[in-house]
C-alpha cells in the first residue's frame, strides 16, 4: 500500500480542522505545507507500517474505549490510595514477558501500561518488560494479562 497519499490526506484534514479558513490563500498554504511534509518523510524513508499504522485503525476503535475504561478504573484505585488517611503503598519493580511480536505492538503496550496510573514501564529489552507498580498486587493480577492479550490482538497478524 502506498502510504504517501494517506499521510497527505490525514495532514491536510488536520490542517483544515485546525485552521477552518477556506480562503484560497489558506488552502494554498495548507497544500504546500502538507506536500513538503510528505516529501521530506518519503525522502527520509521513514514512512512505513510503524510510522503510519493504518492497519490498526479499525481495531483501535474497540481498543481505545476499553483502554479509557481501564485508565478510569486504575485512576480511582490510585486516588483511593492517595486519599486514605494512612498511605499504604507496596511499590516494586516487576519483570515479565510480553507477547507482542512487533516493536509497534510493544510500544503500544508499554504506553498503555504507563497511561494507566499505578503502573509505569521503566524499560524494555526484547520482550522483557520492566514495570514499576505502586502496589505489587496490581501487576500480579490478571489485569496486565488481559491488556497484554488485547494489545497482541490489536497488533493482529504481523507481517
Amino acid at each position: 500500500m502506498n502510504r504517501a497519499p494517506w499521510l497527505w490526506a490525514i495532514l491536510f484534514a488536520l490542517w483544515l480542522v485546525l485552521s477552518w479558513h477556506f480562503t484560497p490563500l489558506f488552502l494554498f498554504f495548507g497544500v504546500v505545507t502538507c506536500s513538503i511534509a510528505v516529501l521530506v518523510v518519503t525522502r527520509m524513508g521513514i514512512l512505513d507500517r510503524e510510522s503510519l499504522p493504518l492497519h490498526l485503525a479499525w481495531r483501535a476503535a474497540t481498543y481505545v474505549p476499553w483502554l479509557v475504561w481501564e485508565i478510569f478504573k486504575s485512576n480511582v484505585r490510585v486516588a483511593r490510595i492517595i486519599l486514605s488517611p494512612r498511605i499504604r503503598v507496596d511499590p516494586s519493580i516487576v519483570h515479565f514477558r510480553a507477547s507482542q511480536r512487533t516493536d509497534l505492538g510493544r510500544f503500544i503496550y508499554a504506553n498503555s501500561i504507563t497511561l494507566t496510573p499505578g503502573t509505569v514501564t521503566t524499560g524494555i529489552v526484547g520482550d522483557d518488560f520492566e514495570v514499576h507498580a505502586i502496589v505489587q498486587e496490581e501487576i500480579d493480577g490478571s489485569e496486565e494479562n488481559i491488556m497484554n492479550r488485547r494489545v497482541a490482538q490489536l497488533e493482529g497478524e504481523a507481517e
Binding site: 485508565i71 478510569f72 485512576n75 490510585v78 486516588a79 490510595i81 492517595i82 486519599l83 498511605i87 503503598v89 511499590p91 504507563t114 497511561l115 494507566t116 496510573p117 499505578g118 503502573t119 509505569v120 514499576h132 505502586i134
Partner: peptide, 24 residues
C-alpha cells in the same frame, strides 16, 4: 494527583500520581 505528589514517598510512586493528573 497533586496531593499524591506530596504524600507519596519517592519519585517513582509520585510518577503514578502525576499520571492521574494528565490522564483523568
Amino acid at each position: 494527583g497533586s496531593v499524591g505528589m506530596v504524600r507519596l514517598p519517592d519519585v517513582f510512586t509520585r510518577m503514578h500520581a502525576a499520571g492521574m493528573v494528565d490522564t483523568m
